[in-house]
């Protein structure tokens, strides 16, 4: 559909298995030609024609937006890769274990030249089933990476007991219940679990998250590897003290004249603590669905397809972030309802 080059961002804390996943992607017989942007040369065991070393130079933009940072090196590398147009059909960016995914993602929203040629496909985070729980306690970077992810590869499940696995899954879900979660050993996931996700495509937000408008579905089916424990166990419900996700539902329409200023104000004010935001809204008097997504202070939203006759016109928004003020967000959103009596 899109002629732009898709870009997949691979994150994950040190030792989680990013390089294993990368090698797996590159060595599979998939017919794709990748350009790979890495931080450490030499770790990749596969001959790939286009491997580019990056410096992870994070720059602030002079646009009055304090959390608006971009990866300067990525802008430069994507520009340079276009000199080899036609030699590759997708780009994979591997970040360092300590990297914050936000500047990488923001680069694709902020830089027009990058936007003209490439699109962010998804942020894929590799997590270590054995050590993730510890890292979530002591490494803010690891928590960021989980919170930011569209796809989480919970790796090294062979090194933990089923109970431990359920425990770490619950920890992940406490932070980010929306990402696709795959439990694996040695990053053995089908490629289409990682590539071609269209996670940042406004038109695809619902297709990716079929449970998006259903409350309280933790989506732990569809990736059984013989270790599916069934739904009767359920997941423990953890509460992460620092990083949370909240979703708010209005069982009906919102008034765009109230919602737009409110959401803009929220991301302006709370942007530094909001990692990701998404929403699908029924605007009063509008046949089409309004869909938006955001990274910190940057919002991208548009009217999308029409509501189908069999769809209920409801409005839902999701925030993932650090120390979010749940009550403020809820009351602010609820005040945007077109018919507050609903």
């Amino acid at each position: 559909m899109s002629e732009k080059i898709p870009v997949t961002v691979l994150t994950g804390y040190l030792g989680a298995g990013k390089t294993t996943l990368l090698n797996r992607i590159l060595s599979e017989d998939h017919g794709h030609k990748f350009a790979v942007i890495v931080n450490e040369f030499g770790e990749i065991g596969i001959d790939n024609e286009l491997i580019v070393g990056a410096d992870e130079e994070v720059f602030e933009m002079n646009n009055g937006c304090i959390c608006c940072t971009v990866r300067g090196d990525l802008i430069r590398i994507i520009e340079g890769l276009m000199r080899r147009k036609g030699k590759f059909d997708a780009i994979i960016v591997e970040t360092t274990g300590l990297a914050d995914p936000a500047p990488v993602a923001q680069t694709f929203f902020v830089d027009q030249d990058v936007q003209d040629q490439a699109r962010l496909d998804a942020v894929v985070t590799v997590a270590d089933a054995k050590w993730l729980a510890d890292r979530l306690r002591d490494a803010p970077e690891a928590k960021n990476q989980i919170a930011f992810a569209d796809v989480i590869i919970l790796n090294k499940m062979d090194l933990v007991t089923p109970e431990e696995l359920r425990e770490v899954e619950a920890r992940i879900r406490a932070i980010n219940p929306y990402a696709k979660l795959h439990k694996t050993s040695r990053c053995a996931v089908p490629l289409d679990a990682v590539l071609g996700r269209n996670a940042f495509d406004l038109d695809r937000i619902l297709e990716i998250e079929p449970s998006f408008l259903e409350v309280d579905d933790h989506d732990h089916h569809g990736h059984d590897h013989g270790h599916d424990h069934g739904h009767d166990h359920g997941l423990k419900h953890y509460h992460d003290e620092e990083m949370q996700s909240f979703s708010f539902l209005i069982d009906g329409e919102v008034d765009p004249a109230r919602f737009m200023p409110w959401i803009n104000l929220i991301v302006q004010r709370e942007g530094p603590s909001i990692l990701r935001s998404k929403g699908i809204l029924a605007f009063k008097g509008e046949d089409k669905r309004f869909v938006f997504q955001g990274v910190h202070m940057i919002l991208d939203g548009d009217l999308q397809r029409e509501w189908r006759p069999d769809e209920k016109r409801v409005s839902k928004i999701v925030f993932i972030g650090r120390n979010l003020k749940e009550d403020d967000l809820r009351s602010g959103f609820m005040a945007c309802a077109a018919n507050p009596a609903q």
Binding site: M61, N63, D111, Q112
Partner: peptide, 11 residues
């Protein structure tokens, strides 16, 4: 040689 001019990320 009197002036130095750069282009910037912010257009």
């Amino acid at each position: 040689g009197l002036f130095c001019v750069t282009s910037m990320q912010e257009n």
